[in-house]
Design a protein around this nucleic acid. Structure first.
Length: 531
DNA sequence: GATTAGGATCAAT
DNA sequence: ATTGATCCTAATC
């Protein structure tokens, strides 16, 4: 078994938004993806499988409790909790927050760990969290602070020890479905077991199942994720041809040779656990092959896609809410201050002193964590980590920008704060990108759509493959796709009505066809256009 | 109300 | 001639 640790956990997480109706708590969506123990994927858990990628260093000081029954999530009576959870269940983000919170506390929710706290972003350890809650620094909502510690807090007892840890490893090695799920925080690793209840509870949400049903034409009602995965494991054992594009997102992340850097993963020494665990660095090729084998047709991708989709929407919303670029280096001093203030508010940090943050974004991103801490002793670390998240988020978005309009149109300097500035940010020289179909105005619609489909990092929220091999895709956000098309063709009046009319012309031309079972906003390329 | 479907017309290439 | 943009009506979800 090869074990890795993650350092600076929060580096690839995404910023949060402030929805109109309320407050979106900070939540590390990338952890959500990570927390899909990849051993759950079909094919079991062979040596050097991707499921070992995210194993973190064991630190008994940080070890939380063994999982117990979830008794509450919010500080309310059981009936209120039920009502509240039911009300919140359709909200995907809330599920993620619940998921996120649960993973840090096992399945215990006797007290009221606020999902708005920095620990939800992996910035503090549970021990810190306990102190923070006791001091009521992170109330259960930004507007109110009603937390009262209850007796028997899970934080008042000492963490479980190595026996438990080793048990988990034994289980890990002996079972296909692992109930082991370690995490770490910044450089301090800790470990816990969630029984994958996070994933299961997420998946069991009626709303999520409904969406999966809509998008995959499969009905998972009444089935647990575990059931499905077990079935898929059996399926994988048969001679079901594996579709190379399944789990594309995961695959891309894992195939990426820089993934170790990207996810800040590095092999660690697990010798302190005892003699059973072997330390070996996997052959990259083996690893990748195993990854591919692991990515057999499964049921995780829809869920993952939804998480990522939600994450992207949050990025969009945040930028729109603050009226700032997604690229911190583009921020002017006003942008910097509004971001600092907003982030401070999110984390219930003291109001920042404006004169300490009077700088352009280019200066801000050059500050070290120490610089941040000297400006804000209480929240410097958090602010710095958040900025790292933004920087990472922007670079992710940037990956998807493969083209620029040929004509440098007038909007470049207009200070336009439209809601899709991820397309408006200046595109740095990008020699790494393929040069195919780069020129903007000659492109055909079907080519353009394929371009968008080819960059799920940037456009997965508005258009994505449903079945890559059969060329079936879905337009998730018709308005946005039309806007992008209009932008590309320099047709400001473009809308989905017109765009779809053009797509329908493709039916006659044999470029696209209707899907067998017609679904809204779902189209299918004909061969060879889908290749 | 949003989407789908397709006819008609026009402009650009 | 081809392609897509535009406008339109009608049907469907």
């Amino acid at each position: 078994m090869v074990l890795y640790t993650r350092i600076a956990e929060a580096d690839e997480t995404m910023p949060q938004t402030v929805p109109s109706a309320g407050f979106t708590p900070p939540c590390d969506y990338s952890n959500f993806a990570d927390n899909f123990d990849l051993s759950l994927l079909p094919g079991g858990d062979p040596p050097n499988s991707p499921s070992t990628l995210f194993y973190s260093q064991y630190d008994s000081e940080k070890l939380p409790q063994q999982p117990k029954i979830v008794t509450s999530f919010y500080p309310s009576s059981p009936s209120e909790q039920e009502a509240e959870l039911e009300q919140l269940a359709p909200d995907f983000q809330t599920l993620l927050v619940a998921n996120d919170a649960k993973k840090y506390y096992g399945n215990i929710y006797l007290d009221v760990p606020s999902p708005y706290s920095p620990i939800s972003q992996g910035l503090l350890s549970p021990n810190d969290q306990f102190t923070s809650y006791r001091d009521n620094l992170y109330p259960s909502s930004p507007e109110q602070s009603t937390y009262t510690p209850s007796p028997g807090s899970v934080y008042s007892t000492s963490p479980c020890g190595e026996d438990y840890l080793q048990n988990q490893y034994i289980k890990k090695e002996n079972s296909t479905i692992s109930n082991f799920s370690p995490f770490n925080v910044k450089e301090e690793s800790f470990l816990l077991s969630t029984e994958h209840s996070d994933v299961l509870s997420l998946f069991d949400s009626v709303e999520i199942q409904k969406r999966i049903k809509e998008e995959t034409e499969e009905d998972f009602s009444g089935r647990t994720l575990r059931e499905l995965l077990e079935k898929d494991t059996q399926d994988a054992g048969r001679t079901v041809p594996q579709q190379p594009e399944d789990h594309r997102l995961l695959r891309e992340a894992l195939r990426d040779t820089s993934f170790q850097k990207k996810f800040n993963i590095k092999p660690i020494d697990f010798g302190f656990l005892g003699g059973d665990v072997k330390m070996e660095e996997p052959e990259q090729d083996d690893l990748m092959r195993t990854c591919n084998e692991e990515m057999a047709k499964g049921s995780i991708e829809p869920v993952l896609n939804m998480a990522i989709e939600q994450m992207r929407k949050d990025v969009d919303n945040t930028c729109a809410t603050l009226g700032i670029s997604a690229d911190p280096s583009q921020w002017d001093p006003t942008n910097v201050l509004s971001w600092i203030r907003w982030t401070s508010r999110q984390f219930s940090l003291p109001e920042p002193l404006s004169d300490q943050w009077d700088m352009a974004g280019s200066s801000l991103i050059a500050l070290t964590e120490e610089d941040f801490t000297s400006r804000s002793p209480q929240g410097g670390m958090i602010l710095h980590a958040q900025l790292e998240i933004w920087k990472a988020a922007y670079s992710e978005e940037d990956l998807g920008i493969q083209w620029r309009p040929e004509t440098t149109s007038s909007n470049a300097s207009s200070g336009d704060l439209s809601d899709d500035e991820e397309e408006d940010v200046p595109c740095p020289a990008d020699p790494a990108k393929p040069t195919t179909s780069r020129s903007g105005s000659h492109i055909h619609l079907w080519q353009f759509l394929k371009e968008l489909l080819a960059s799920p990092q940037a456009h997965g929220s508005c258009i994505r493959w449903i079945d890559r091999t059969r060329g079936i895709f879905k337009i998730e956000d018709s308005v946005k796709v039309a806007r992008l098309w209009g932008k590309r063709k320099n047709r400001p009046a473009m809308n989905y009505d017109k765009l779809s009319r053009s797509i329908r012309q493709y039916y006659k031309k044999g470029i696209m066809k209707k899907t067998e079972r017609s679904q809204r906003l779902v189209y299918q390329f004909c061969h060879p256009y889908c290749l």
